[in-house]
Write a protein that binds this DNA or RNA. Structure first.
Lengths: 128, 128
DNA sequence: TTTGTTATGTTATATTATAACATATCACAT
DNA sequence: ATGTGATATGTTATAATATAACATAACAAA
């Protein structure tokens, strides 16, 4: 059972949920200043918590964050995204067999697979 | 035929080649100051070029850079890495079938696959 | 040898992220 | 209801990563 979110965490999460595109931390900050959040720290702390519980994911190559659309997201650690180079939207994919594939590929190098981050770039359905 | 590298580009590349771990841009800068490179700009510019020609790759989740060990690396755009959480070393993998897999997965979402960045985390052979 | 392209040197600044510390709030066992 | 420990907050400052802008130099190739 997840603990309830605090005010700041809710505000940050709602901001991300409303956004079509991933948002940077300072872009989130700009959006929530009218709601009383005044410093980067507050945003980053809320993000940390939200990421820990799997409600938000970071897109590493964009230094940006998205709300996870999947209830009870298992992707606390491993994540896989489709990133549209036209509209900047990001779609999370939950393919069980990706982990299997990466486990196998890792094994070939005698590497113990733990988690992964996959970012696929291209053009989304709407943009093509 | 690739153009020859300039002095700054060679210096930055050699620094990365000598390193066991990926290096951040400012860590590279620290290493090359005695060789006459004095500003972040010079490092970033050399990195840009080296990345463009495929001689260096960026590890997005670490904001760090590694020299590519593969002659004539095709990975100018798509990259796949094994990242050891114990020793911080990074191993690039060249699995042709990963692109195929990602193409298929993308297709399922009506997404036109173009390139990818894969970062697998775990424990390397030496560390386990 | 001039012309266009690419690289350099340099200073300044933008962007992303953490450190540190005092205070407050919350969950919950006594 | 009260103390206790864990977690969150507010705030200021600063670290770490990356780019802008502009003047100059080197280089390739017609």
């Amino acid at each position: 059972m997840e603990p309830d979110l605090t005010n700041n965490q809710k505000i940050v999460l709602q901001t991300l949920e409303k956004s079509e595109q991933p948002l940077g931390a300072y872009s989130i900050l700009f959006n929530v200043e009218k709601k009383g959040i005044k410093s980067p720290q507050q945003v980053y702390r809320a993000l940390d918590k939200l990421i820990t519980i799997g409600a938000v994911h970071k897109i590493e190559s964009l230094n940006s964050y998205i709300a996870c659309k999947h209830k009870e997201c298992k992707a606390r650690e491993s994540t896989s995204f489709l990133i549209c180079q036209d509209c900047q939207r990001v779609f999370e994919i939950l393919e069980a067999d990706l982990s299997d594939k990466f486990l196998k590929v890792s094994k070939k190098s005698n590497f113990k697979y733990s988690t992964h981050n996959l970012e696929i770039f291209g053009v989304c359905k709407t943009c093509s």
